[in-house]
Simulated assay, not measured.
Amino acid sequence: MTSSTSPALERRPRLLVLDVNETLSDMTHLGDRFVEVGVAPYLAAPWFAGLLRDGFALTLTGHNPAFADVARSSLHTVLHDKANVEAATRHIMAGFLALPLHGDVRDGVRALTALGLRLATLSNGSAEIAESLFERGGIRDAFERVLSVEDAPAWKPAASAYAYALEECDVTAGDAMLVAVHPWDVHGAKAAGLRAAWIDRTGAPYPEAMYAADVVARSLPDLAARLEALPAAT
């Protein structure tokens, strides 16, 4: 079993690499789309987990599929008994373009930039979706790069995905910190040599089998406060 302990941070990172889906975007609203096509809203969460599983499987077998393609395929499975699967799938997929930010994100992003930290994203979803989310939320100016694995060799948590972000932002792994709500993403980043922060919005226990986060915070403002307490990178 992988150790879940992590040494204390000695300084702030230079660059924060933020995940997008669920970390910054509030995807609970997709449940409304499921209801609108006649499907129980609780199916939204297992659908998203299933599409990530399929994406990981494809990555492990040497493919780098488009997030939207995997999402649509997974929806076809969930909605297979609907009268008009294609129309229902289009309606749910369109919901990605209307998702809001989590309530803590705008203030948290401003607090992080106030510390002089560079911000970028690395999403398994498309850069277009992230750009739209940030424009609607009024935080696009805070991010120097909006990166997606669609331009990387593989999906996260493959090491090559994180290496792509580091190269694009011209930083070393030791100077970067991933920020995500997903323990699998934290684990992948740690395995690739980055530091990592876990945003624990639900209070659920962190999986003991995975590499532990260097910082655990309940929100982005909480993360900013924890990083502010550390010496700045020199």
Rank of each mutant, 00 (worst) to 15 (best):
R195P: 02
A173C: 05
A165P: 03
P221Y: 05
P205I: 06
F143Y: 07
A158Q: 13
T113N: 12
L119M: 06
R118M: 05
V85Y: 04
V109R: 09
W155S: 04
G125S: 15
L147M: 13
G95W: 10
L220C: 08
C169N: 12
L122Q: 02
A161W: 01
A87K: 13
A120E: 00
G95K: 09
A196Q: 00
R106P: 00
I129V: 15
E131G: 13
V78D: 03
G103S: 13
R118K: 11
A94H: 11
A191R: 15
D81M: 01
D81A: 08
K82D: 09
Y206T: 09
E144Y: 08
H182A: 14
R110T: 10
F96R: 11
A217D: 02
L122G: 00
H80R: 15
E86T: 14
H182T: 07
F134S: 00
G95L: 10
Y162P: 03
W155Q: 01
L194C: 07
Y164Q: 07
A180L: 06
V149Y: 00
L119F: 09
A217C: 05
G174E: 14
S132K: 14
W155G: 03
R136D: 09
A163N: 06
H102L: 03
A88P: 02
W198V: 01
L166S: 04
L79W: 03
Y164V: 07
A88N: 01
Y211M: 13
G95F: 09
L79H: 06
K156Q: 12
A212Q: 11
G203I: 11
G95P: 11
F134A: 00
D200S: 10
A142E: 08
G103E: 13
E167W: 12
W198A: 03
L166D: 06
R218C: 11
E208K: 14
G125M: 04
R195C: 10
A142Q: 09
Y164R: 05
A213L: 02
R110I: 06
V85W: 02
G138H: 10
H91N: 05
A87W: 05
T113A: 14
H91W: 11
D104N: 12
A130N: 00
A197M: 09
V146R: 04
A189S: 07
N84I: 02
A159W: 13
E128Q: 14
L117P: 06
V215T: 00
K82T: 15
K156T: 11
R136F: 02
D104G: 13
A154E: 05
L101I: 06
G103Y: 04
M177N: 06
E167R: 15
L79S: 04
P205A: 12
R201F: 05
R195M: 12
Y164E: 06
A87M: 08
A180W: 03
A130Y: 00
G174V: 07
L117S: 05
R195T: 15
I139F: 08
E135A: 15
L115C: 08
R136S: 08
R90S: 15
Y164H: 14
G125I: 02
P221V: 10
F134C: 01
G108C: 04
V171C: 07
L194E: 10
A83W: 01
G137M: 09
R118P: 01
K190N: 09
P100A: 11
V179C: 11
V215L: 00
S132G: 14
N84H: 13
I92G: 10
A98L: 13
R195Q: 14
R195H: 15
A158N: 14
Y206D: 12
A152C: 04
A192G: 01
Y162K: 05
A127I: 03
A158D: 15
K82N: 08
D81N: 03
M93T: 13
